[in-house]
Nucleic acid binder design. Structure first.
Lengths: 193, 193
DNA sequence: TACGTTAGTTAGTGATAACTAACATTTTAT
DNA sequence: ATAAAATGTTAGTTATCACTAACTAACGTA
């Protein structure tokens, strides 16, 4: 039953911190939402920072983009871009709690902020650029600036993700498929031969 | 001399809150950075919330997109999209402090969060969509889903803005012209006849 | 010179938050 | 049924924070 309590606390903490950020949530808040006493929280996690780390650890997903790129691509540009887009968005969705917590407490968690951004995204950028390069060599698309176009493509998806993450009742809500479809369509006819 | 002090306080508050958010900045912090005593801060702004409101008021820019659309467009699609992109990014840059403060204190400032997002962006979306519609009628571009493409275009720019705003040492830093150029290029050849 | 404005200083209040300690109660496993 | 583990309760410590009050010092202006 130990695990049950710990999970309830983590779930409550994740929910609260995702909405309000780290410093705007008290341990008492977490205890109340979790339905336990404040002491119990401290017994499971020594400090408030300990709770945060557990939350981050629980919701931190490492992407396996390399594996994805080597296995799931068909060669058809439109289809592949759609797959890449959906994979990226699914990955961001999983990391949404972390993203929302860190954006609300940027100054307190600078290293994490960088972790989210650069490592993963830059790796993906290179993979997409390499994919473009491959398709150029296959004669499927024009001789574009592969790196720049990879950035444009991924940044668009990032914009979509952020819009949905920051604004609950947003006009983009439930528009994922539509957005991806139009983005890919424009992109494909924009870079095709 | 009155204005000088008030300005110093506002400047300090803006800087601190942009970096750390509202609730992670104390009035004492602001006073120290402004080089005045804490009491002086309270004499100029009755409450801490009063400081925030003054900061928001000072850095809140209302866009005149309608005017821009009726005056600054040439008819050349590539050129116009570039102009639109730069105007939008310049507008977001001006509102950057507000954006950063509100994202760090979402739960405390929900109305402001919505103000930033919907009103302005949705208006711009309609203007861009109308522009696409006009160019379709002119025979310059294909019969696209104007609204969807307007969203894709603006969301890409939004993604660029957010990346730069949230991450100081980002790979996109100082890449504005390049980004806009590649985005517009892909877009233009993607929707042109 | 006298006065008003502006700012600094010091001390304090009340609230909240993170965290500890000691002890009581419930739950679970054997 | 009983011991051990997990949780609750209560009280308290320390620190910070928003904000107030009272008094003082510097300044420009009439």
């Amino acid at each position: 039953m130990k695990k049950d309590t710990k999970d309830k606390i983590l779930t409550a903490a994740t929910s609260l911190m995702t909405e309000r950020g780290y410093s705007n949530v008290s341990v008492k808040d977490i205890a109340i939402v979790a339905g336990v006493s404040e002491m119990t929280v401290f017994r499971h996690f020594e400090t408030k920072m300990g709770i945060l780390h557990a939350v981050l650890h629980k919701h931190s997903y490492i992407p396996y983009f390399e594996q994805f790129f080597s296995q799931n691509l068909s060669g058809d540009v439109a289809n592949d871009l759609k797959q890449i887009a959906n994979t990226y968005l699914a990955f961001m969705e999983k990391n949404k709690p972390i993203f929302l917590i860190t954006t609300q407490d940027r100054s307190m968690l600078p290293e994490l902020m960088n972790t989210i951004s650069n490592n993963q995204t830059q790796q993906l950028q290179q993979l997409v650029a390499a994919y473009f390069q491959y398709q150029i060599e296959q004669g499927k698309i024009r001789e574009i600036d592969t790196k720049a176009q990879a950035i444009v493509f991924l940044t668009s998806l990032f914009g979509f993700f952020v819009s949905n993450a920051l604004w609950e009742h947003h006009f983009l809500k439930d528009q994922k498929d539509s957005f991806v479809q139009h983005l890919v369509a424009t992109f494909v006819s924009g870079i095709s031969i």
